[in-house]
């Protein structure tokens, strides 16, 4: 019984590690080119992975940074936002190094049903504005 419980616990804990892995992952259903976003990611060696969603003038991105760069998350977010705003002037750019945002954007990319993408993106942006 104990062994079964232990195995169950390990599998539950490890199932939390289901991620897209390192590198950049893009979902693009807009007319914009996704190459500038890839360049921004390649130029920055503090980043481990980046998930990008381009949809209807919305650019939402979640980034994971290297362990010791975590202390400069805010600065990295700001720098990335500036670069991406230059690359995508027509888009409303949102960049976050928050785990929740990475998790949500990963979910959108993995989920094949994109019917409520607009609502999902709005929810992500509202989560970032939440102050309490």
């Amino acid at each position: 019984m104990r062994k079964i419980m232990f195995l169950l616990l390990i599998s539950v804990v490890l199932s939390g590690c289901a991620r897209l892995g390192e590198g950049i992952h893009i979902y693009n259903d807009s007319n914009a080119d996704s190459a500038p976003a890839e360049n921004v990611f390649k130029e920055d060696d503090r980043l481990v992975s980046m998930t990008v969603i381009l949809h209807d003038q919305q650019f939402v991105s979640g980034v994971t940074v290297k362990t010791f760069s975590r202390f400069h998350k805010k600065k990295i977010e700001k720098e990335l936002k500036e670069k991406l705003e230059k690359a995508y002037p027509d888009f409303d750019v949102t960049v976050s190094a928050d785990n929740k945002i990475v998790h949500k954007t990963t979910e959108i990319i993995q989920n094949k049903d994109k019917a409520q993408l607009e609502e999902q993106l709005e929810k992500i942006i509202s989560l970032l504005k939440e102050e309490t």
Partner: peptide, 16 residues
């Protein structure tokens, strides 16, 4: 992590 996965908390707001 539990609050972030199952509720609408971000890394910042999950601390409370």
């Amino acid at each position: 992590m539990f609050y972030m996965t199952f509720f609408d908390f971000t890394e910042r707001t999950a601390s409370n």
